[in-house]
Nucleic acid binder design. Sequence first.
DNA 1: ACTATTAGTTAGCTAAGGTAACTATCCGAT
DNA 2: ATCGGATAGTTACCTTAGCTAACTAATAGT
Lengths: 156, 156
Amino acid sequence: MAPATTRPRPSRLRTVDLADRLHSAALHLLRRLRREDDASGLPAPQLSALSVIVFGGPITLGDLARAEQVRPPTISKLIIMLEAKALVDRVADASDKRVVRVKATARGTKLLHDGRQRRVAALVASLSALPARDRALLARALPVLEGVARNPPEAS
Amino acid sequence: MAPATTRPRPSRLRTVDLADRLHSAALHLLRRLRREDDASGLPAPQLSALSVIVFGGPITLGDLARAEQVRPPTISKLIIMLEAKALVDRVADASDKRVVRVKATARGTKLLHDGRQRRVAALVASLSALPARDRALLARALPVLEGVARNPPEAS
DNA sequence: ACTATTAGTTAGCTAAGGTAACTATCCGAT
DNA sequence: ATCGGATAGTTACCTTAGCTAACTAATAGT
């Protein structure tokens, strides 16, 4: 934009622009990766949920909804689909009959790992084509990005 | 590539894991921002397309589809919605009656700018809460991320 | 025991994505 | 000069993902 009256610092990127471009980059990254996800047989949201289930052990649907930052009905449907594909099982809670826990089946675990390999292949190719410096830069920025991405507006 | 049998460097993050976590972070970031997008009255894909139209001047639907990395019918529908909201206009091409160009209306341009401010407010809040170092790190990594996000598998 | 709260589900909506099949136009041959 | 192939968009139809509202079932509090 305009250099205004005083010259901006070289790295001067307004926070608004940073936010905007992060948003845009995330959108395009996801659209690009969707193709690979489809090739692996599982859309991104299902893959993401399955990942939480595989690594997070048996988890209640409510906790899963919170982890995935979606509403309960959305999780219900995702689980129905994962269950239909025999990738997860429902586990009844012993002490509270309202809660439903889900855990990954062996097939789910395998698919996640296989799928992950395949899915990220294209991204890995892109990343590998980067200069090592850029890759290292991304790796260092990643935890920050993850914090921003997962930081819910209410639960500071 | 790998340090072979010797111990990995401390910052050793396998490219596969980097890719996987980037994917996950993008997904969560978008889910989080969707709420703000909704508050601004325009879903993320429409906002993204509008942004390309506003900044990219009159553009053909095909070029827009490529820029947005979606199929023609998807763009057609997005444009129909943007048009219904009087945010873009179709412009006939003089020399080729097949092509349709779209350009932003004044209202579309205004909404984009207003919406952008509102939309990123939450993200700005998160980013502002970061240590300056982290913010700078994100800013430096952003161009790399953008390159990876927009890099189509075919048109390297 | 009765109420309020919590966990999930169901119903019904919108938006975004896709493929397949179509129309309309343009261009290149013969 | 028309005829066939390529190109730009559109239409029809399907699936997934997300939401809210309204529901059932179970727990907890008084």
